[in-house]
Amino acid sequence: IINNLKLIREKKKISQSELAALLEVSRQTINGIEKNKYNPSLQLALKIAYYLNTPLEDIFQW
């Protein structure tokens, strides 16, 4: 999986903590996703895309 979450999140000036709060997950979860240590569920990936107002395929590429 190619993961552009960190790049997109930083472009939008959103911290890991802010995104985690919006998604109701821990900051460690966001960190793990960004470091490719954790693959989000489809539901979480869709929520990330929604809150970042970015197409899912721009954030994650399988």
Results as ranks from 00 to 15, higher is better:
60 F>T: 00
50 Y>A: 09
47 K>C: 09
10 E>V: 11
30 I>S: 00
38 Y>C: 12
48 I>C: 04
41 S>V: 04
18 E>G: 09
13 K>E: 10
59 I>Y: 02
32 G>L: 15
8 I>F: 09
40 P>L: 09
3 N>D: 02
49 A>F: 02
23 L>P: 00
16 Q>E: 06
9 R>K: 01
44 L>N: 04
45 A>P: 00
41 S>R: 07
54 T>R: 04
6 K>W: 04
42 L>A: 06
40 P>M: 06
16 Q>A: 08
58 D>W: 08
43 Q>M: 12
47 K>I: 06
7 L>S: 15
11 K>H: 10
49 A>V: 04
30 I>G: 00
4 N>Q: 07
41 S>Q: 05
15 S>N: 06
29 T>M: 14
50 Y>N: 06
26 S>V: 03
24 E>K: 15
35 K>C: 11
14 I>S: 03
37 K>M: 15
2 I>V: 13
6 K>Q: 11
55 P>Q: 07
19 L>W: 03
53 N>C: 10
35 K>M: 14
57 E>G: 11
15 S>M: 04
10 E>W: 06
21 A>F: 10
40 P>Q: 01
49 A>E: 03
26 S>R: 08
1 I>M: 14
58 D>G: 04
7 L>Y: 12
24 E>R: 12
47 K>H: 05
29 T>Q: 08
23 L>M: 07
55 P>K: 10
48 I>T: 03
47 K>A: 11
58 D>P: 00
53 N>H: 08
45 A>H: 02
28 Q>P: 07
8 I>W: 06
33 I>R: 01
2 I>P: 09
2 I>C: 13
37 K>N: 11
61 Q>E: 13
9 R>G: 01
29 T>C: 15
29 T>E: 11
30 I>R: 02
62 W>L: 14
31 N>T: 08
54 T>E: 08
21 A>C: 11
20 A>M: 03
20 A>Y: 01
4 N>S: 06
3 N>F: 03
26 S>W: 04
34 E>N: 02
40 P>W: 04
3 N>C: 07
32 G>D: 15
60 F>H: 01
16 Q>C: 03
32 G>C: 15
49 A>M: 02
46 L>K: 11
28 Q>K: 13
6 K>D: 03
46 L>N: 08
60 F>I: 02
30 I>D: 00
18 E>V: 11
21 A>Q: 10
43 Q>L: 14
39 N>F: 15
33 I>D: 02
32 G>H: 14
52 L>P: 00
37 K>D: 11
54 T>W: 05
7 L>P: 09
47 K>M: 12
61 Q>C: 11
17 S>V: 12
61 Q>R: 09
12 K>L: 08
36 N>F: 10
19 L>G: 00
23 L>Y: 01
32 G>T: 09
2 I>K: 14
57 E>L: 08
44 L>E: 04
29 T>N: 04
44 L>Y: 02
30 I>Q: 01
47 K>E: 07
49 A>C: 06
